[in-house]
Design a protein around this nucleic acid. Sequence first.
DNA 1: CGGCGTTTTGAGAGAGCTCAACATCGGTGG
DNA 2: CCACCGATGTTGAGCTCTCTCAAAACGCCG
Lengths: 200, 200
Amino acid sequence: MSAIDWLPAAVRAAAIERTLKAGQTLFRRGNRTSGLYEIVEGQVRLVRVNRTGREAVLHVATAGDTMAEASLFSASYHCDAIAATDAVVRLYPKAAILAEFDRNPKAARKFATVLARQVMTLRTRLEQRNIRAARDRVRHYLAINADADGRTVALSGTLKDVASELGLTHEALYRTLADMAADGEIERRRGAIRVLKAAI
Amino acid sequence: MSAIDWLPAAVRAAAIERTLKAGQTLFRRGNRTSGLYEIVEGQVRLVRVNRTGREAVLHVATAGDTMAEASLFSASYHCDAIAATDAVVRLYPKAAILAEFDRNPKAARKFATVLARQVMTLRTRLEQRNIRAARDRVRHYLAINADADGRTVALSGTLKDVASELGLTHEALYRTLADMAADGEIERRRGAIRVLKAAI
DNA sequence: CGGCGTTTTGAGAGAGCTCAACATCGGTGG
DNA sequence: CCACCGATGTTGAGCTCTCTCAAAACGCCG
């Protein structure tokens, strides 16, 4: 679900677009929070920098993602945001959002709904990463993303994208899919996979 | 943050405790949603069952966790919840929560805050899992969980717990820590780790 | 002291990663 | 229409790293 789908029109109207060069800083830890960002294009890295200078990546947000939701409820940012590539971001000012939430409880509830869904999805993806074997991880992915019929899985984006969502190299994914197809467990189609039989 | 810390007293007063035997069902997909659960004791598995009978674990909630936040905004559950062990859960009825949110915007905002923080934490943990090498993953963990001084990391729970949070076997973690200590990168203390020098 | 869970160390195997080469496909421009 | 180009898709071979299984030391608590 993109920000466009759930942010009230009043807030969307207040959005400010900004263009970033690769390596450019969007905000730094300790800065006063300005609001919620949506990535329109490119990638932005959220990074926590240690006093010792060590960096730890907290998240890499890509086109369509929103970022820094928690900053709505905090006075200052707790990490740095740096453009990983040339990027375009859209800022939804905090004041506009919070004002809208106060004025319009439905908007606030919608926001909570989106967050709760995200928590669910993220937990699921984390659970998926606990599965060691590539094949079982793919099965988990197929089971979760199956269509209503429980047999067809539409592939969003390229297989490389799926591989990185699964935490596998693209080679490993290709091989696994090829093996599963050879065993008759799945059938590969254009932009989709059909599950043929349930394995143990 | 435990549910006790952020749920308004009015809601906590309406809580209903329930005891489950291992294997017992708490709710099933399609059931009308009754509310938010907190695990008091034991473990509960959230599972999606395919039409083909295949199971996919979405999440394993353990003592202190809350569960099914998204169900507050949905008419029916989208997965099954089954006790993985003997367990005690606490139900915060949906009606009480939503009524409180309507009556008290501060409570609603608090809820959104908690969810936003969780999203942040989960994204970070997911990012961590993208790191292949055990040593780098441990470094990431240390960097994220460092104290204010940026050098000391207090260990919550046992090293086995940390290992499972990191997605490593406990053996792998012990070995990695031993190697890092031998290299002078860290120093091990009782219930804590001290980072001595930043590695590349 | 005995028992249980955590911590630690050992050895071996397997699975996925890495590097590499090639095929395929869609778009672009001559 | 065809050649070219970049990105995706595919397959091969070797290696490294973590997992697995195993066993023992350690620490805590009754």
